[in-house]
């Protein structure tokens, strides 16, 4: 059996947020993360999947196993072609929300993961990349 070290999930309707969570849980567990880190990674992925679905209507999540010297990890990329984020700094402030949410998704995700990178252009879309590492 060939074990895939990357994958992709389309986020087209609400139930795909669950698919994203299941996919990430399986991948992170197989990469060898402990249960608390798996929970952190899955929760972060759930926030980003919901943002893509909620603000852009649809999106895609790609994951891959990554390596860096003594560490291995997981990288998740969430891409959408929605409205984009006008002010990134503001979007990352805890409590800031344009939808009456808690404004917890982005700042929380940043705390749960080791690295987070957001690229967004108004009118073009948003790509959020997060990584979590563990020692080999």
């Amino acid at each position: 059996m060939v074990v895939e070290s990357y994958g992709e999930v389309d986020i087209l309707d609400e139930s795909h947020i669950v698919t994203v969570r299941k996919t990430i849980r399986e991948a992170a567990s197989r990469i060898g993360f402990g249960v608390t880190d798996v929970t952190r990674i899955v929760t972060a992925g759930s926030e980003l999947a919901r943002n893509a679905f909620h603000y852009a209507g649809r999106g895609v999540m790609r994951w891959q196993e990554v390596e860096n010297g003594q560490s291995i990890g997981i990288e998740l990329v969430f891409e959408d072609h929605g409205p984009g984020i006008a002010n990134l700094e503001q979007a990352l402030e805890p409590g800031y929300s344009t939808s009456g949410g808690l404004g917890m998704g982005l700042p929380g995700t940043k705390r749960l993961m080791d690295e987070m990178d957001i690229r967004s252009r108004v009118g073009e879309g948003t790509t959020v990349t997060v990584r979590k590492w563990r020692r080999k």
Partner: peptide, 13 residues
């Protein structure tokens, strides 16, 4: 679960 409590707290909840 402990993992859920840790994660929810870190998330800011």
């Amino acid at each position: 679960r402990p993992s859920v409590a840790i994660t929810a707290t870190q998330l800011g909840f």
